[in-house]
Write a protein that binds this DNA or RNA. Structure first.
Lengths: 197, 197
DNA sequence: GCAGACTCTGACCGATCGGTCAATTAGCGT
DNA sequence: ACGCTAATTGACCGATCGGTCAGAGTCTGC
């Protein structure tokens, strides 16, 4: 085995397979994606997929684990530095993560129910609940829950499935999208601060 | 054949099958749902499903067609009565439809890309584009697109997958949800009217 | 150049997929 | 009670599913 960390064949193949798998999982669903199709997309044989990953479930776990870890890290930083950490910063970083891991987020949000037995999905569930608490700051009214849910689900939808509605070449760049998302999501989570609770 | 319109066996069975199918399509995806499982859920044999519907695709079409028709009707009424029709009313009626047809909306929004060859999905695509135009009123800035996408996708997420985050019995009733959605979505689509375009 | 590990693949397995079909059962007009 | 139609079903089909396995190809340290 090469002691050098430079892209060994193993790492490169595994990355290609994870990328191809995530794309399929996000578009046709986990159950609707076949190992054969993932292998074809990545340019390998079906057997090779099961050489790098013990099972279809293990492949999904490996594919979305980086996204979950990213959210856990951001959340940890925000919760530990309770003083300096402003809520606006948290929103900005979460938006960055949504853009970076859009496919993984989409898979989790739209199929998390049917995949709840997978450990990494359970981890993501915990992270989302903690994120909701951090964002809503102890106020757990129905309004706050709705605002959080719309912001999260809406952003995830916009970044994946919603792209099919953008007419041809009108779809905004990632930078435009990041800017708009940061502003609008912050606005959604911070209502006009009406005197009522 | 009974001349009476009172629930003939045919209609009742077809309804049960459509309902069971829609639930599965929304949770595990169209490709991930088997006719066998739909039949089991509804209490029929797999052959019976294919007696009532020509194919798996035909079953999906029949199951989400009422939702598409509902959206087309609301849109038609709004666009024809251009004078009296206020935008707030449109939002209210769309929210009602989202609540009534939440599973169909979820299927369309999360799997519309991979099902775009089905005629009813194409119809729904047209309807959504027209809805976006009606809601954004000719202003098609990136911000407006993002606001519309977040509102639509967020509401759909909240009404289906998002339910798994509500702790136990804390999840709000449909009436609470309808109320919150109407207010918050109207607020999202009508930003603080900053002087900038 | 040889040995041993690493990577990749085709052949194969039982199970399940969507779909067809002939036969059986249930329901209704007469 | 009879006969016709509509409703339902089990047996069956080829294809594909996730997964196993033994072997071929490839690379590296010595």
């Amino acid at each position: 085995m090469p002691t050098d960390a430079r892209t060994t064949s193993r790492v490169r193949a595994a990355d290609e397979l994870k990328h191809a798998a995530l794309e399929q999982f996000a578009t046709v669903g986990f159950a609707g994606t076949s190992l054969q199709h993932i292998a074809d997309e990545a340019g390998y044989a079906k057997s090779s997929v099961l050489y790098h990953f013990a099972s279809k479930e293990a492949l999904l776990e490996a594919a979305i684990e980086p996204a979950v870890e990213g959210f856990e890290d951001v959340l940890e930083v925000f919760l530990s530095a309770r003083r300096s950490g402003r809520r606006g910063e948290l929103v900005d970083r979460v938006v960055d993560l949504l853009l970076e891991h859009r496919e993984a987020v989409h898979v989790f949000l739209t199929q998390g129910q049917s995949l709840s037995e997978l450990p990494v999905i359970a981890r993501a569930n915990v992270a989302v609940r903690r994120l909701a608490s951090a964002v809503c700051e102890e106020r757990e009214s129905v309004d706050d829950q709705v605002r959080f849910g719309i912001a999260l689900g809406g952003a995830a939808f916009l970044l994946t499935a919603g792209r099919s509605f953008a007419d041809e070449s009108t779809l905004p760049s990632d930078d435009e999208m990041r800017d708009a998302l940061r502003r609008i999501i912050a606005e959604i989570l911070t209502p006009a601060r009406t005197p009522s609770n």
